[in-house]
Design a binder for these strands. Structure first.
Length: 815
RNA sequence: GCGAGAGUGGCGGAACGGUAGACGCAGUCGACUCAAAAUCGACCGGUGUAGGCCAUGGGGGUUCGAAUCCCCCCUCUCGCACCA
């Protein structure tokens, strides 16, 4: 249902923009690789390809029934070699351009299943299937060098004006530009030839407040310590069981191990500090080592308190006395003045003191000011079957050799088994054994496949020329790209959208496209949620198994057992709180489903799917149809009226105001408001039915009814056509008509209601002409009886008048 | 833990810093009906006999005026790099 909502929103935009005269490309495709297909294969002994294609067929049928105005001639699936072969070409071009790199990194390893686990497959540190304690394991992996583009991925965010501000902020924080210093601490005595430890810090101004140095468990110095100290080795082994996800690392209890090694302070060579291994220091960020200043960093403080390390404040907050200022359980991270800091004393922290500290580090030749990025390169290797094969060959003589272009696509073998643990591509009997394209000797294919984020990082551009023999054709992408309106869930705010932004740049660098930013406009929609239900034995129940009993409580429709109604949450198969779109369409029709989806709430929020809401939408479709039949039955041939009775003028005003209001609502994605305006106009037509019949009112009713159909058409296209065909037998299709324009003169108000306040409290309202002079409005306001009573005995100090809106009297006096 | 959002009647929600609750759902009463459904009409935040007062998660602040802007707090949601 989440997809159905997403595509319904897109279809409204597509139909609306088409009516506004735009040439709209509204395609559909399938992001079809990934874990779910492999999980299904393991659990149900079906082939991932069959499972995937069956799902695609079912979903395609569903979308077609929704009446989406999609260009199906451009459809493709990412699991089709006709698609992923082009992706392999892109990969090879990026490899040649130096945008791909092979290096080692850590993965979650399930020692029992003998397989790499996704973070979501690690539950409380254990493999989801085997229950074994997960270990970190080092593997050689492929990386796309997104960090090369970090500066422009950040700066270009400013140009994405039609993106939600929060998404831009999240991406900026994710890229994480920071200015700080890299500096080397000399070890008091070298270990295994290691003489210094390099540290990155954003707070060189607090160096004099140092109390320890900490390295990541994966840091070479940690390994050196482990080699001579079993305790350190055990601590590192313990850290290896923590998993690789940052959320886990950050929420796990902070722990450390004192290696016994010591480093000299760069500004105070005679003073040394202990070197700890800490489980919260990330090898991937900065240099994998930090200096700890507990007084001015909360995490360092927690660590120092736990292990009894010194806490020395060196930044004095404004108004504090240097003699008495002390740190309790909260680090001071605000601005101040450096003290107890040697040559930094008296400098303003952080800015001035930072600059001075960096200058000194540079003078001493032990460090430098640097810009650091939080963004890491994108590891795309997956040790899995159901993904795009990475098109390289490993040869003992030639090393890594790209698959020749003529041999693309590298196809997945179909005869694979999921009975064995590990990657089916790796233990396939023949697939990986090939001759080296360069020297002809026996060699092996890469058995890793691509992260599915790669598949979804360029599909939007492929729609421009979906059948081309190259990945993209410049003429087509130059014509269509960038995507004018992209719609997706907020859960994609960072990864998918950032990868796509990077990939577009990488495609430009390899000559496939001429733009940098793939999505000019972005809208993030909320999830679809539903109540969840459980039977007496705690098993989850589907909504259509549950009925209301006579006393209003929920019971099982067949067995009558009591049902516990759980919280409203995102639809998921595991909780069975899903609704089948096909069944809804069969029962109520596509327009009802679309109307409910759009009317329920603002599209960027989560929507709750309710039976009552669907029924309400269905009733409205019936009501519109009845109204239309009533209007269609009126005698035709009335001329455009020259003068209007009050009833007809009122209806025409409502019609033209509705045109303006619906247009504005659609432009701003306020589809629920657009729906409300259509309801209002329908209500006005209903009222007009009861008024005395006259030629001008008949004309106004026809106009109003036609506009209801045309304004609702992007949302309920089928009924709109039906209504218009009755109003204008043999006439145009709504889909072929331009979007209606409001007549400002007809929409104009005859009087406006001005609210009258006394000291900001509403005391009455007055009706005035739209252009009435201030003096006139204020006089009318003062004359209003209730206002006059409130003003009695008071002195009016000030009269505030906002034309057409409000008068506010500021008074003084008793009471 | 860190980053980003959200919070308004019984429910979904509306509201350029200017009459809080448009519109819909549910509900109550009435009409129609033998009856029910459908449909149509009226009512529908709380409280008070009333003038009124109280109400937009909680607490402060800015302003003639705050759901809207600022600060602190609470709750929920999304993301945290191998779910996509």
């Amino acid at each position: 249902m989440g997809h159905v909502r997403n595509y319904t929103l897109g279809d409204v935009v597509a139909r609306y923009k088409r009516a506004r005269g735009h040439s709209v490309l509204h395609p559909m495709g399938w992001d079809a690789f990934g874990l779910p297909a492999e999980n299904a294969a393991r659990e149900r002994h079906t082939h991932p390809a069959k499972w995937t294609w069956d799902n695609i067929a079912a979903m395609r049928a569903e979308l077609k029934r929704m009446g989406l105005s999609l260009d199906w001639s451009r459809e493709f699936a990412t699991c089709d070699p006709a698609y992923y072969g082009h992706q392999q070409k892109l990969f090879l071009d990026m490899l040649a351009a130096g945008l791909v790199e092979r290096r080692e990194s850590w993965v979650n390893w399930d020692p029992v299943d003998g397989t790499v686990l996704a973070n979501e497959q690690v539950i409380d540190g254990r493999g989801w299937r085997s229950g074994a304690l997960v270990e970190k394991k080092r593997l050689s992996q492929w990386f796309l060098k997104i960090t090369k583009f970090a500066p422009e991925l950040l700066s270009a965010l400013d140009g994405l004006e039609r993106w939600p501000e929060r998404v831009r902020v999240m991406q900026a924080n994710w890229i994480g530009r920071s200015e700080g210093a890299r500096l080397r601490f000399a070890l008091a005595g070298p270990v295994d030839g290691i003489e210094t430890v390099e540290v990155y810090t954003t707070r060189p101004d607090t160096l004099f407040g140092m109390s320890f140095l900490a390295v990541a468990p994966e840091h070479p110095l940690a390994a050196a310590a482990a080699a001579r100290n079993p305790g350190a080795a055990a601590f590192i082994a313990d850290c290896r069981r923590m998993g690789t996800s940052e959320a886990v690392i950050e929420t796990t209890e902070k722990k450390g191990w004192d290696t016994g090694l010591r480093v000299r302070h760069p500004f105070m060579p005679e003073v040394t500090f202990p070197v700890w291994i800490a489980n919260f220091v990330l090898m991937e960020y900065g240099t994998g080592a930090i200096f700890g200043c507990p007084a001015h960093d909360q995490r360092d403080l927690d660590f120092a308190r736990k292990y009894g390390l010194s806490v020395v404040p060196v930044v004095l907050p404004p108004g504090e006395d240097p003699a008495t200022f002390a740190i309790g359980n909260e680090a001071y991270v605000g601005p101040g003045v450096a003290f107890r800091s040697g040559f930094l004393d008296g400098r303003v922290s952080p800015d001035e003191a930072k600059a001075a500290a960096i200058a000194e580090l540079e003078r001493l030749g032990v460090g430098a000011g640097v810009v650091n990025w939080r963004l890491r390169d994108w590891g795309v290797s997956r040790q899995r079957y159901w993904g795009c094969p990475i098109p390289v060959i490993h040869c003992e003589t030639c090393g890594v050799v790209p698959v020749p272009e003529a041999d693309l696509p590298v196809r997945l073998p179909e005869d694979v088994t999921f009975e064995r643990a590990g990657n089916p591509l790796d233990h396939h009997p023949t697939w990986k054994h090939v001759a080296c394209p360069r020297c002809g000797r026996p060699a092996q294919r890469e058995t890793d496949t691509c992260d599915t984020f790669v598949d979804s990082s360029w599909y939007f551009a492929r729609y421009c020329s979906p059948h081309a023999e190259q990945p993209l054709t410049l003429a087509a992408v130059d014509h269509w790209m960038p995507v004018d309106q992209y719609i997706g869930g907020i859960e994609h705010a960072i990864l998918h959208l950032l990868y796509s932004r990077f990939f577009t740049r990488a495609m430009k660098a390899t000559g496939h496209i001429s733009i940098e930013e793939p999505f000019a406009g972005l809208f993030t929609q909320g999830m679809v949620t539903h109540e969840s239900y459980r039977g007496e034995d705690g098993r989850w129940l589907y909504p259509d198994e549950v009925v209301q009993s006579d006393d209003g409580s929920a019971v099982h429709g067949e067995t009558g057992e009591k049902v516990t109604v759980g919280r409203v949450e995102a639809m998921s198969k595991s909780k069975r709180n899903t609704v089948d779109p096909g069944a809804i369409i069969a029962r109520f029709g596509a327009d009802t489903a679309r109307w409910f989806i759009l009317s329920d709430n603002p599209p960027d929020r989560d929507m709750e799917w309710t039976e009552a809401g669907v029924v309400g939408a269905y009733r409205f479709t019936q009501r519109l149809f009845r109204l239309a039949e009533g209007v269609a039955a009126l005698p035709t041939g009335d001329a455009v009226p020259d003068t209007l009775s009050p009833a007809a003028r009122g209806l025409r005003r409502a019609t033209h105001r509705t045109i303006a209001a619906v247009t504005e609502a659609l432009e701003s994605f306020a589809f629920n408001v657009a729906v409300a305006r259509v309801y209002e106009l329908a209500n006005a037509i209903g009222d007009a039915e009861k008024a005395a019949d006259s030629a001008d009112l008949r004309w106004a009713r026809r106009e109003a009814m036609e506009m209801v159909a045309r304004l609702a058409a992007p949302m309920m296209p089928h009924l709109a056509e039906e209504i218009l065909s009755r109003l204008r037998p043999g006439g145009a299709l709504v889909a072929d008509l331009p979007w209606p324009e409001a007549d400002a003169a007809l929409a104009a108000a005859e009087t406006v209601t001005v609210a009258v306040q006394v000291m900001g409290k509403l005391r009455g309202t007055v009706e005035v002409a739209p252009g009435a002079a201030q003096a006139e409005v204020v006089a009318a306001a003062e004359a209003e009886p209730n206002v006059a009573r409130a003003l009695e005995g008071k002195r009016v100090m000030k009269r505030i008048y906002v034309p057409g809106r409000i008068v506010n009297f500021v008074v003084s006096g008793p009471g």
